[in-house]
Design a protein around this nucleic acid. Structure first.
Lengths: 340, 340
DNA sequence: GGAACGACTTAAAACGATTCAATGACGAGT
DNA sequence: ACTCGTCATTGAATCGTTTTAAGTCGTTCC
C-alpha cells in the first residue's frame, strides 16, 4: 500500500532528489558511482515513476491518441500496430480509441486526449471535427488524419489513393479479357467507396467495348454481397467480372456464385476481385484477388509526421498518399499462384 | 499556445480556485449563481482540466488498463466494448493494449499501467504474470483476469465454461440424431480448445453408440479447417457431424464440404457446429450453428468486480464463470429459422 | 598561495488541481 | 443584543517529479 517516491529513493541512497531524477533522465550528468548507488536503491525499494507528476511538470504526456472508425476492421488494427511500432522507438505509447463511426464517441475521445495533454492525435474521422482539432492544435496537440484527408487541407493526412486502387482493379480485369464488369458496393456516401467506383469508371472509359454496371449496396457486408451475388447468378445474361468494394462484399458474392447447383465457375465464367486484402481473402474457397493497402505503413507514416509536427508546430500540413497494390490470386486468374 | 488553469478561471470569475474546483467536482456545495458564473468563465476561456495534476493529487488515474491477446479477434473487441460501457458510467476510460500473445509486450503494458497509476487492470494473460500482478496489487492497483483463471486463484477472474460449451455443442448434435462425430481443432495446448474437447468427450460418454474422433490442428484458422474438411469429404465412410473448436475452423470445414463437385449436403449429410458465434457465422453460405459467449457481459462483469476491489482491496478473489449459449442455425438443423 | 575552473550535487521553485480547516456572512432563537 | 448554526467561500498545503541556479569540493594554473 505504501507508495515509494523519489524522496524515499534519495534518502535510501543518501543523495538528494535532484540526483535521483538525474540518474533517470540525464545519467551522463551523474558520477558513475552515484548512478549505481541510486539504481540499487530504486531496485531495493521497487520504485516506479509516477507518470502524472512527470507529465504535470513536463506539460504533456508520453501517449499518442489514436481514434479509429472500427477496431474490428483488420485494416485499422494494422494501422494501429504500425503506429505503435514507430511510437515505441520514441518511448511513446498509443491509446487506442474506437469511435464505432459515432461522431459523439469520437468527440469524447478527443476530450479525453485533451485532458491528458496527449503528445498528439491520429484520427480517422467520421464527423466534422476540424474546429475541434484546431482547438487541440492551439493547445499544442497536433493531429494527423488517417485514411481521409481534411476538407480544407489544414491538417496533415496519410491516405491511400482509392481512385487509383479502383482503376487498378478494373484494369486488371480488362487485361484478363473481361468486358462486362459489375461494381458491387455502397453506400456511395462512404468516401472510400465513391473513390473506388470513380477509379473503376476511369479505367472503363479508356477501353472501348467495356461496360460497367453498378449494384449499390447499403452496407459493406458479407450478407449484402451475397444478395448481390445471388441476383447475378440468377441472370441469363451474366457479366464476366465483378469488382467488389471490399473483401467482405467479395466473399459474399463468391459464396453466392459458388453455391451448390449453380453452374458458375470462378474465375472461368466470372472473375472476381475485392479490396483491402484482409486475411480472409487468401483463405476463401477460391483465393481472392484483391487490392492491398499498406495499413502498417500508413500508421507508421502518420506517427512520423506527427512527431515532426511536435517538433515544428508551424510546419505546413503534409499530405502523404500511398499507392495501393494489386494482389492477383485465383479468383481472377486460373493460373495464378496464390500468394498469402 | 496558452494554457488555461483553474487559477485563470478563478480570476476571470472573481472567485477562488477552491470554488472553481468545487464547481467541477462537488457542484452541490456551491451556490447556483456562483456555479453559473464559474461555468461561464470556463466556457469563455476554453478551460480544459489537466488530468495529470488531478491524478497527482488523487493518487491514481481515471483509466483502466485492458490487455488482450489479440485485438483482431472479435471476441476481445466485444469484451473491450462491454468493459468500456461499464467504465463510462464511472467516468473511467479504457486503455486498450494488445499483447499479440507476446509475454514481453504484456509486461510492457503492465509497466505502463503501473507508471500511470491506473485505476485497475483487466488482463487476458499469456505469460506467467502472477508475481507482476501481485506487485501491482501491493501498489493499490487491482487486477481481474479475463477468459482465463489464475493458476492459484489468488486473483479474481471472469471466464466462460468451455467444458460446458463443448458438451452443449455435442449434446445438440446427438439430439439431432447424429452418432459419428468428429472434433476438429487444436493445438490442445490452448486451454480453451482442450476444455471444449473435454466437454465433447463428456457428452459422448453419456450416450451409447456415439463415437468421437479427434482431428488435431496446429492452428485455429480457416485454412486449417479447410484441410480437415477436405480430408473428411474425401472419405468413403463419412461422419455425420463435425464440431469445430471455433468458427474460423468451422468456416473452413464448411467451404471444403460445400465445394463444387462434392455431393455432401450440410446439414443433411453432415451437421456442423462451430464456437464463438462470430459475425461471420450467420453470414456463411449455410448459416452456422455455434456456441455463443457473452463477450460483452464478460467485459462488463470484469469491470464490475474491478470496481469492487478498488473499494475493498482486501476482498477475497471472486471467480465468475459464465455459461455459453447454443445458437441453432441451419448447419445443424435444416428447419432452423436462422437467427442473426 | 590564491584564483579560476570543472565536475558533481543540492535545495528550492515550479507544474495545476484538490481538499480541508478556517473564515465570513446572515438569520433564527433566546 | 448576543450567540449559535448553517451555508458559501477562501487560502494554504499537498501530491511527486523535473529543472535551474546556487552551492561544494578538489584540482590546476599562474
Amino acid at each position: 500500500m505504501s507508495t515509494v517516491s523519489v524522496k524515499d529513493v534519495a534518502q535510501h541512497a543518501g543523495v538528494s532528489v535532484g540526483t535521483v531524477s538525474n540518474v533517470m533522465n540525464h545519467p551522463a550528468k551523474v558520477a558513475p558511482a552515484t548512478v549505481k548507488k541510486v539504481q540499487r536503491a530504486i531496485e531495493a525499494l521497487g520504485f516506479v515513476r509516477n507518470d502524472a507528476a512527470r507529465q504535470l511538470r513536463d506539460g504533456h504526456s508520453k501517449t499518442v491518441g489514436l481514434v479509429v472508425l472500427d477496431v474490428r476492421n483488420p485494416f485499422f488494427t494494422d494501422v494501429a500496430r504500425g503506429a505503435e511500432t514507430r511510437a515505441g522507438k520514441e518511448g511513446l505509447s498509443i491509446i487506442l480509441g474506437n469511435s464505432d463511426e459515432d461522431p459523439s464517441r469520437e468527440l469524447a475521445y478527443l476530450d479525453l486526449f485533451e485532458q491528458q495533454r496527449s503528445h498528439g492525435v491520429l484520427i480517422s474521422p467520421i464527423g466534422e471535427i476540424t474546429p475541434r482539432l484546431t482547438a487541440l492544435r492551439d493547445r499544442g496537440i497536433p493531429a494527423v488524419l488517417v485514411d481521409r484527408a481534411s476538407p480544407d487541407r489544414s491538417f496533415s493526412s496519410v491516405t491511400v489513393d482509392d481512385v487509383a486502387g479502383g482503376r487498378m482493379a478494373v484494369e486488371h480485369l480488362i487485361a484478363e479479357g473481361r468486358t462486362r464488369i459489375v461494381f458491387v458496393g455502397g453506400p456511395l456516401s462512404i468516401h472510400q467507396v465513391a473513390d473506388r467506383l470513380e477509379g473503376a469508371r476511369l479505367a472503363v472509359r479508356e477501353h472501348d467495348g467495356v461496360t460497367l454496371e453498378v449494384i449499390d449496396l447499403d452496407s459493406l457486408s458479407v450478407i449484402a454481397g451475397r444478395k448481390a451475388g445471388a441476383s447475378i447468378a440468377a441472370r441469363t445474361e451474366r457479366p464476366d467480372a465483378v469488382f467488389a468494394a471490399n473483401d467482405l462484399v467479395a466473399m459474399g458474392v463468391l459464396q453466392a456464385l459458388m453455391l451448390q447447383g449453380s453452374d458458375v465457375r470462378v474465375p472461368e465464367d466470372i472473375a472476381l476481385i475485392g479490396y483491402d486484402d484482409i486475411d480472409f481473402a487468401s483463405a476463401a474457397v477460391v483465393p481472392l484477388s484483391s487490392i492491398r493497402q499498406p495499413a502498417g505503413m500508413i500508421g507508421h507514416t502518420a506517427l512520423e509526421i506527427l512527431l515532426e509536427e511536435v517538433e515544428a508546430p508551424d510546419m505546413a500540413a503534409r499530405h502523404v498518399v500511398f499507392q495501393p497494390e494489386l494482389v492477383v490470386r485465383r479468383s481472377t486468374s486460373a493460373s495464378a499462384i496464390d500468394s498469402m
